[in-house]
Nucleic acid binder design. Sequence first.
DNA 1: CACCGATCCTTGACTGCTCAAGCATGCTGA
DNA 2: TCAGCATGCTTGAGCAGTCAAGGATCGGTG
Lengths: 152, 152
Amino acid sequence: MNDALDVSLRLVRAQTALVKRFDASLSGLHGVSLADFTMLLRLGQAPGGRMRRVDLAEKLGLTASGVTRGLAPLERIGLVTRESDARDGRVAYAALTGTGRERLTDMLATAERIAAEVFAAPLWSKEDIGQFSTLLTRLGGTGLPGHGTPPP
Amino acid sequence: MNDALDVSLRLVRAQTALVKRFDASLSGLHGVSLADFTMLLRLGQAPGGRMRRVDLAEKLGLTASGVTRGLAPLERIGLVTRESDARDGRVAYAALTGTGRERLTDMLATAERIAAEVFAAPLWSKEDIGQFSTLLTRLGGTGLPGHGTPPP
DNA sequence: CACCGATCCTTGACTGCTCAAGCATGCTGA
DNA sequence: TCAGCATGCTTGAGCAGTCAAGGATCGGTG
């Protein structure tokens, strides 16, 4: 088998394990999945804690319908609200609520702790992490700050 | 945000993109998903092209029920058959059929081509790929289920 | 103005996995 | 011997995402 194919399959495998680990802690402590947390995090990074849903989808690498479905439970439990645009009737914003912001702070602390555990010294050095990040970005890390894909 | 958390989220993002790319080509050319292909590949690597289903699950990082569900369509289209163990009535094997082997050869060629495209020079050197593989292995490599799921 | 295509979002039907429960079967030790 | 536990597998219910279709709104053009 190809080295490139081997590394591709390894990547897939490593990701599912990583996601499981985050899901376990986040759902145990905060009742959200990693996907939920990522949605909230991106919202929290946007100015005013709000984004058009279609932009959120692009940021997350989901389809618009994925965002609709993912936000629904977060709206139901009051972490996110829906806002409309005065000028453009098509647009709906997703916005963090006050509670959403508070809860996000806690989730972020948990997520950072898990990540720090996963990439803990002495197995992982700062250089390793930097190198890993570079390689992952090269692979197609769109939607993340600082590495934007210009419009077509 | 943490570097470690950042790299974790990048990993998740990169994987979904990669999977989409493989899925597109594999399903277009061979009518199977990447998950299907990976199942067949692991079967093909096993002696005699057959494995106990529970071992296959472990190899793939799935649950036993995931294997049952994943193999069903492959059995239906005749790439895999079910065999039973003469000594242990509980065990069922999954085995590649002749057709399965042939089709797998083609799929493998496609998958290797895609992987080679993704990790193509000049963006990726052989050393980059090796480094990437090392880091991914460190992260969970061929690891297995039971990655520590604490009680609720 | 009135239409037409593009954009934003939601919904229905589906896939692909999970967990929990259940059914056989096998193994062990009193 | 056989009761009880462990193992292998399947099944029902549910969750998270996809695609395709559809409804609403916007913007440009005749």
